[in-house]
Design a binder for these strands. Structure first.
Lengths: 338, 338
DNA sequence: CAGTTTTGGGTAATCGTTTACTCATTATGC
DNA sequence: GCATAATGAGTAAACGATTACCCAAAACTG
């Protein structure tokens, strides 16, 4: 079992040279004659030798591997980012170890130690747990954070969408469309991204002298997956309690979808009676019942900026991050719900 | 850089014992006194030592890591499967190396060699390229294939949905609903899964003495991502060419979505004028414009069966696969397009 | 109490690489 | 033609673990 890998030692024997020479040829490093080069390369080709990464990593203290910690790989936003980062690094000779944490603190911790013990060269982290941050800071490999602003004063580089402006744009749009009474529907969370969206909402309200009351914000429980039902229930409750509103800013598209559904089922017209804006511009937004007006996050840009920054950190000795905290612009996409 | 990992040697020195003893304590293997155990464990705890996986892998010729080759991690079907497999193996102490190939043969090959050189203990592969199969067979680690039937006579274990029956059920359903003229819309592909769906379509037709002609099958070009536009174009062409049909079986949900859109835009009513069935039951199917009748693949079952089979192969010495080729049942989900 | 067994733990080889030191041999400079 | 430089390649240490093998001391036997 698993004994088929031919080692450099055997190649050396077959070539009648020392392992050192073989290694030198492989890495094109050090001196050897053209003749030996040919001979070695031939044998390597013939026996399909490929160098054992594990041994190389151990010796070099470098794995050419990066780790990426992600809450949920089956979520479109994350899987797209991961996909693009993986692709970027593959092209540059790096492997990517994708770690799915299901938002569990334990799994995050476990993965971080595991990655460490695998000698990854760097870490991209989408988390948001304080303990994790602490643990990250104590490593001395490059680390970049996406989408979750660290809460400790620290030095982690960080890339995120401009959530605040997103919330602001969404709400402003509802106001511009003539909504008089606007609520924000959000899942309970202490993620900076979600909070920023709500803060943007507040700012738009304030700017137009709309009141912000305890009824302006409706929270659903956090959920692992698409929160449609949670959103429906929440809106159902609101309507049952006699609250009136003609504009809803939902902090993600799935919530927005639930809102639309529930409104329609309650015989309210969208967008005539109530207008709805979502957030993210997931694929679903464009193909749902009523195509969703939403705030688009520039996933590609996020992935690209992250990759470039991180690659720099990884390869340039003493690379300086001239911008510790990068905000990627968002965009309002107007469709049929407003 | 990256010098923070404390090694077993240093632990040994701190405990005033040999590395062998430390190793024995860690692995609870071999003999040592209770006193030494405590001492070693204390120091390990104190210095946050964790064993270097790379070195261990090299020495043991076992990495406790599996590789999984997947065409596109940002596709819901695959990301869900990967997610569940990862979770299953995490619980059992295995890491999962996820390899995204973008359907590129070169990337697949590169990843397979790379995984090999990383000494993974086994491989789950969603591919479908003959060369890959050949290359897989030459390894002697456990390998399981999902969703893509190997075309060579070989011994790879294989798990897939019952695509044939899915195609049959979809078509039969259209017939039962009274469709007189049914076409199948599919992307050009030589994947066994897609072909099987079409074969199921043919069988249902034959069984009910419906004719199968060259116009019964409409092909779109293969695409990396959601093929909505391709489907729209195809249907547009068909209509323009004066073809008539009152039933469409689309071999995936995204195609079906495109079909529905194009039909509506052409002032045809769904389901009154034309009925449509998709395949997969992606999330979108339930939340699209007109919720989609579709064939549901039991993704969870696929992941579960694969994991269990594979885990067996991995852990039981000389494990026997009593069923080389496993078909997971599919289910017709009737919604609003039929 | 001599002989045997058990216990605790050290020594050193090994896994597959890379590379700093070597040192002949050949080539070059004057 | 002799001193010096360049070339090609081997030797062995190191990376961080595990474990077969060994041996002294302690604990049993009878």
């Amino acid at each position: 079992m698993k004994s088929n890998q031919i080692s450099i030692k055997e190649i050396a024997k077959l070539c009648d040279v020392s392992v050192a020479t073989v290694s030198r040829v492989i890495n094109n490093n050090g001196r050897f004659s053209e003749e030996t080069r040919k001979k070695v390369l031939d044998v390597i080709e013939k026996y399909q030798y490929s160098t054992n990464t594990v041994a190389k990593t151990l010796r070099m203290n470098k794995s050419k591997t990066i780790g990426i910690i992600v809450p949920d790989i089956s979520n479109e936003f994350f899987s797209t980012i991961v996909h693009e980062i993986e692709s970027y690094f593959f092209d540059r000779g790096f492997s990517t170890f994708i770690c799915n944490t299901d938002k569990s603190k334990e799994k995050e911790m476990a993965y971080i130690t595991s990655l460490d013990s695998k000698m990854v060269d760097g870490l991209i982290c989408i988390s948001g747990q304080e303990e994790i941050e602490a643990s990250l800071l104590s490593r001395d490999i490059p680390i970049v954070t996406i989408d979750r602003r660290p809460r400790m004063t620290n030095n982690l580089a960080m890339i995120e969408s401009d959530h605040f402006n997103g919330g602001y744009l969404a709400t402003k749009h509802l106001i511009d469309r003539g909504c008089k009474s606007i609520i924000v529907l959000t899942k309970k969370s202490n993620l900076s991204s979600v909070n920023d969206r709500v803060e943007g909402f507040k700012k738009a309200l304030a700017e137009h002298s709309y009141p912000f009351t305890s009824h302006s914000i409706v929270e659903t429980a956090d959920d692992r997956k698409h929160n449609i039902e949670k959103a429906r229930n929440a809106i159902h409750e609101e309507l049952k309690n006699g609250r009136t509103f003609d504009g809803v800013f939902a902090t993600n598209d799935w919530l927005a979808l639930g809102v639309v559904r529930e409104l329609l089922d309650s015989n309210l017209k969208v967008p005539e009676d109530v207008k709805v804006v979502g957030f993210d511009d997931d694929t679903i937004a464009n193909y749902s019942e009523i195509p969703l007006t939403t705030i688009r996050q520039d996933v590609h840009k996020i992935a690209e900026v992250t990759s470039e920054l991180f690659y720099n950190l990884l390869t340039e000795e003493n690379a300086v991050i001239n911008k510790k905290h990068i905000k990627i612009p968002v965009e309002l996409i107007v469709r049929k719900t407003t």
